[in-house]
Amino acid sequence: MKNRITLEPSTNTHTLEAKNIEVEDLETGILKLIIIGEGIVTHGEHGTLKTESPHVLKYVQQELNPVTNALQNAFD
């Protein structure tokens, strides 16, 4: 159990804070989370969000690269 985790590493990291957080890393940027209490999600550039369910999955935006036809994470 943790109470602060990095949701996505970047220059402006997406960070989740809550009373308690269970994390399962499903790879390729997908996380399965069990969040006890309100989850506060912060980022240096984007506005703050609050999670309101204990069961949360985190995915990364995807785009299909037209040159290689490879699906890739679309980072901002």
Binding site: H14, V41, H55, V56, K58, Y59, V60, Q61, F75, D76
Partner: peptide
């Protein structure tokens, strides 16, 4: 709930 390039999927 979306924050930039990540999506929080509340189940």
């Amino acid at each position: 709930k979306r924050q930039g390039d990540i999506m929080l999927v509340e189940m």
